[in-house]
Amino acid sequence: MDLAMKHCRQVAKLPKRPDRQRLPALPVPKLPGPSGLTESLLSNFSSKHVMNITWYLLPLAVAISLVWNTSRYESTSLILKRSGRMFIQILIFMAIILGVLVALSYNM
């Protein structure tokens, strides 16, 4: 009985729930402008970060083309020649995909 009374007293001392209307208004999120999606796609290339995530594509493409062609050929000169060609093909392919995405998102 004593415990129950103590609990009731503790509950009574709890601060009242704040009035909802007095709560500060939540900040309104800034909606993207007319070309928001295009900007966000292109922002990958112009971020303020020291090392933008897009640049990681280059070592990845270099490693993939080198390892792939090393597993195909035995001649060092042929490996290097084919790797260089494959690296450029990867970059062109990725650039085309980026171009298509930018075009599709134009004015979105």
Partner: peptide, 17 residues
């Protein structure tokens, strides 16, 4: 996996000549 394959079976094309 490609490298392991190359070590076991050799390159897919060889010297190219």
């Amino acid at each position: 996996v490609l490298a392991i394959w190359d070590a076991v079976e050799g390159p897919a094309y060889g010297f190219g000549d």
